[in-house]
Design a protein around this nucleic acid. Sequence first.
RNA 1: UCGGGGAUCGUCCAACGGCAGGACUCCAGAUUCUGGCUCUGGAUAUCUAGGUUCGAAUCCUAGUCCCCGAACCA
Length: 571
Amino acid sequence: MPAQSQTSDSSTQPASHFIHDIIDEDRRAGKNGGRVHTRFPPEPNGYLHIGHAKSICLNFGTAKKYGGLCNLRFDDTNPTTENPEYVASIQNDVRWLGFEWDDRLFYASDYFEKLYQFAEHLIETDKAYVDSQTHEQISAQRGDFYRPGQDSPDRTRAKEESRALFRRMRAGEFPDGAHVLRAKIDMRSGNLNLRDPVIYRIKRAHHYRTADSWCIYPMYDYAHCVSDALEGITHSLCTLEFEDHRPLYDWCLDQLPVPCHPQQIEFARLNLSYTVLSKRKLLQLVEDKLVDGWDDPRMPTLAGLRRRGYTPEAIRAFCDRVGVGKRDGVVDVSLLEYHLREDLNARAARAMAVLRPLRVVIENFSEGEVLWCEAQNHPEYPERGSRKVPFGRVVYIEQDDFREVPPKKWFRLTVGSEVRLRYACLIRCHAVVKDPATGEVTELRCTWDPDSRGGSPKDGRKVKGTLHWVSAEHAKDAEVRLYDRLFSQENPNDGDDFKSFLNQSSLQVLRGCKVEPALAASQPAELYQFERLGYFCGDNKDLRDGKLVFNRTIELRDSWAKIEGRQQGES
RNA sequence: UCGGGGAUCGUCCAACGGCAGGACUCCAGAUUCUGGCUCUGGAUAUCUAGGUUCGAAUCCUAGUCCCCGAACCA
């Protein structure tokens, strides 16, 4: 059985929720002929993040559940912020997450001509007019939360005149901002979105797909609902902030001869503790060089999570567990980490690596002799085989696994104590060698028990501590990047400036780490558990040309750190 | 002070007039050649006040609090 199938992908049948209740009811009533067709509609103005993953899983997952389809559509109606790099990254990320749109890749910009014709239809039916006032005049007339708006003097403009002006807008006869096309709805509505919203503006900007063929561009509220209808979408799922756009969504479709009228349903977007999930803020981190690009392993982008070592299965399981509701809240990042560890524990091959090496000399072990130790690749899956790890007279252990003055409940190494070197043997420490200048421990002098070859002593005595180690003679050098959460505050969105909550030690680069020789063959993005430390992966950019670079995806749970932390709290 | 939403363990999600349940987190223990994994046990919640009902998280009334909304952004 391939290792892949033994992982913990729990994405078989996602949990039900209020949206599926609505769809169940629609199907019972025979709406849309029982058909379910959704869409994921990103704007290509940034990289996808874990919040988008929730929407992707919802949209593609809903289609799958009901035997329907889900389109990928780029909502590219604002040429000033969008570009092909984002289009490419989004497609790459959706595929990586495990979803496929087949031949249903669409762009709102593909509908520009149709959108334009529908706009003329609105003018013909007296449902839209060209307003020639300034931006300031229009916004002053909009009123506010407490006062109704006032009709524009152009609201009663003859439709022939509006039509002529609109055509001249398209033809490029006016400068940016000279005119706009507005829907004629209700300037006194309590819903500001219905106070004659602008649906077309003049904007001389080069569009990454339509180049310079247009100088007028449709606005979201108008373009989105029509795009949905043109694609035969049945359920248009979006986030809560669009709730009071729904009357406008419905209004537009009610005025136009579109093939169908999709139902917009809003759900709560994902928020995660200790991070920010807004494209604006993420873009700032990138532009201000506070992180190393959109795929920095500390970023909550899918590209960043991928480089960090997250798997699509872990992210999907997380999105499924988070659920779908209408309350906006903040999901604890520990839930994400739980699903990550659950998947990685099943998936990752075990290996030994020493991050902060401490030299250990086994005095009664012959110089030049090598003991080849049989080490399992995965203790829970013996069928994944084992490897031979060389052991010699000099090995490295983790500095942190030795204490001259052991705290309570310490069962690692100290002078006089005995520990197991995993898969190798038992050793006992007799003496420490210190740097005379600094007093720093530089070497341990130990002896081994030849009757404990493989790690199990012949007399069956119990040894509580087991350490990971690497033979000095055979070790490979590696760079290891230790990542921690990007923000030190649980909700970095709370204060005045989210950047002031950046965790100053979110990245620690360790050089001169010692890894077991088998790791020399590791590949970019390959996942490991470095025993007793955590999950690591080969960096997908910098692991190359024989240079070993590993990213720490996440630490193992560390109950010793808790005990010790508590002890220190008590003293 | 307008319009739209929302209030259930610390967190997220269920319960759709009939025993408030699950997951994460936390705590205690068992097991262990990873202080990992696994297993067992435990702690913690219906915003408030009235009402309807044999029975209310759920229905009604009145409050309170939170979120979103005044781009020619999406």
